[in-house]
Design a protein around this nucleic acid. Structure first.
Length: 352
DNA sequence: AAATCGGGGTC
DNA sequence: GACCCAGATTT
């Protein structure tokens, strides 16, 4: 173990780190919190524009707390992991009301808030209040795993414990915020997942992974996720200038987002099968329907699922009554948050 | 302890 | 196609 790991890290930060981000150096805990929620499992480049949109739309936690949740979700649209948005709204309301708009300043209290786990609590505590809590994100795990040559899988309970203890042991407690920022920047800029810049790395001579040729091996992950395939057939049913949509509420992907009348199948089906589906029978009964237009099949790749999506346009002359579906005005369609695949299709429709 | 939850960039 | 990203929560 090299005692000067922290010193070299801070030295690198001071002299060579020129990574710039809109929330860097921010002292308002509200904005720090906002940035951290947006960045969970999300690349800085992807979250950047969302952060700026949110800060502009909701300059304070009160603005966010009193905003209609549909508007907040619309701003979040396309960013993924939508329960983050749900928790964001819930926590904003709590801080606005119970805390009078003032963010709590103890680690335990911060961590008790919805959507804030060990990483985010440490980030807020250290960046906003300079409290001595080490962040452990993917960057930190990678840096520590390589530097100390640890092959305990990062995605296990024992692994998490080891990396958390190491991170806290090497944390510079007098400048926790700067230290935390430094180690994450270092992981993102130098000790990258692929093709790390070992040639210019200031820690090279003490790095166990470099010494033993394990850079490509570390860090280790135990599990690999398995994938599912699903086929979504969306019926875009128009009646008298309106369209039927509903909010997804089940325990499944895209909770709180909206969708058209859905028939899900376990495999690809034909047009005839679509019309024979239970959904269609349920929705239309014996009313005769005609397909106006049928789209290509689009493929949306999630981390753990492949979704095949097709849109079937249907116009009807009598309204249908289906629980949970709303008949909304066509011009209001874009006010609702949709999954990426639907949002993309709707944009194509507008253009063409 | 394992499974879920998105979307995008990189190799 | 596989891996990873400023992880958290539910099962």
């Amino acid at each position: 173990m090299s005692p000067d790991f922290s010193k070299k890290l801070l030295d690198w930060n001071k002299k060579e780190n020129n990574r710039a981000m809109p929330w860097k150096g921010e002292t308002d805990p509200y904005k720090i919190w906002l940035s951290e929620i947006i960045l969970q499992q999300t690349r800085v480049e992807q979250g950047w524009a969302y952060y700026e949109k949110f800060v502009k739309a909701f300059p304070t936690v009160h603005h966010l707390a009193k905003a209609p949740s549909q508007k907040v979700f619309k701003l979040w649209e396309g960013l993924g992991y939508y329960t983050r948005c749900k928790n964001l709204i819930e926590t904003a309301k709590k801080i606005s009301k119970d805390y009078n708009g003032k963010f709590p300043n103890s680690y335990e209290e911060i961590k008790s808030l919805k959507g804030i786990g060990p990483y985010t609590a440490a980030a807020i505590a250290s960046f906003a209040f300079n409290l001595p809590y080490a962040v452990v994100d993917g960057n930190v795990e990678r840096v520590l795993s390589r530097y100390f040559g640890i092959n305990t899988p990062v995605d296990t309970t024992s692994g998490k414990k080891i990396y958390a203890e190491l991170a806290n042991a090497f944390l510079d407690k007098k400048q926790a915020g700067i230290y935390n920022q430094s180690i994450m920047d270092f992981g993102a800029v130098i000790c990258k997942p692929q093709n790390p810049l070992c040639k210019v790395c200031p820690q090279q001579k003490d790095c166990q992974a470099y010494k033993h040729g394990l850079i490509e091996i570390l860090p280790v992950k135990a599990k690999k996720l398995q994938k599912k395939e699903r086929w979504f057939y969306y019926f875009i049913i128009e009646f008298d200038g309106g369209i039927y949509i509903r909010e997804r509420r089940e325990n499944d992907i895209w909770q709180s987002l909206y969708e058209f009348v859905l028939y899900e199948a376990k495999h690809a089906i034909t047009e005839k099968d679509m019309l024979r589906s239970d959904v269609i029978k349920h929705v239309f009964g014996k009313q005769k329907i005609a397909i106006n237009k049928i789209s290509n099949v689009y493929k949306q790749q999630l981390s753990h699922q492949t979704i095949h999506v097709q849109f079937i346009h249907i116009a009807i002359t009598k309204p249908i009554l289906v629980e949970e579906y709303l008949l909304i005005r066509r011009k209001d369609l874009m006010k609702y948050p949709f999954p990426k695949s639907i949002a993309v299709y709707l944009n194509e429709l507008k253009v063409s």
